[in-house]
């Protein structure tokens, strides 16, 4: 399925994948009573965060996340991905993402999916902030020739 005017967009795959992400977050919420926030769970699983869910629980989710990618690739073949060719840029991006998600207490999953659907003003504010910041960054990076 394609979207008129956007030949590269994958609206159907996006929607179905999004529903799966929602189901996963709903299992975490209604099953374990917790937020499926990947940055927080990752910080906990790696021992960087001292508080949060039990360590083994966070580790299970993170292992599951890696397995999920593998399961998909085994079932449907490799996924087309295109990374920035610059490892320096990727390293800088990682630093910002790691520092920023801890400082702002969440990322696209915790604030974006779980918090916004709860109508949390905090999460809606955070999501707007990282969306606007991301849009400005891409525009500036494109102007500097850092796109790929």
């Amino acid at each position: 399925m394609t979207l008129p005017g956007f030949p590269d967009a994958q609206p159907l795959e996006g929607l179905v994948g999004g529903v799966l992400i929602g189901i996963s977050a709903a299992i975490m919420l209604l099953g374990a009573g917790r937020i499926a926030g990947v940055s927080g769970l990752l910080a906990r699983a790696t021992g960087i965060a001292d508080s949060g869910p039990p360590w083994i629980m966070a580790l299970n989710f993170i292992i599951g996340l890696v397995l999920g990618g593998l399961v998909y690739a085994l079932a449907f073949g490799p996924v087309a991905v295109s990374y920035s060719p610059s490892l320096i840029l990727l390293a800088a991006a990682g630093l910002f993402v790691g520092f920023g998600t801890r400082m702002g207490s969440g990322c696209t999953s915790g604030h974006g999916v779980c918090g916004m659907s709860r109508l949390s003003r905090r999460s809606i504010t955070a999501t707007l902030a990282f969306m606007v910041s991301g849009i400005v960054t891409v525009a500036v990076a494109n102007a500097l020739g850092w796109g790929w």
């Binding site: 991006a93 910002f96 520092f99 920023g100 504010t125 955070a126 910041s133 991301g134 849009i135």
Partner: peptide, 10 residues
């Protein structure tokens, strides 16, 4: 924090 995350995301 969210704004810094956005920079890395972009």
């Amino acid at each position: 924090g969210a704004a810094l995350f956005g920079v890395g995301w972009g």
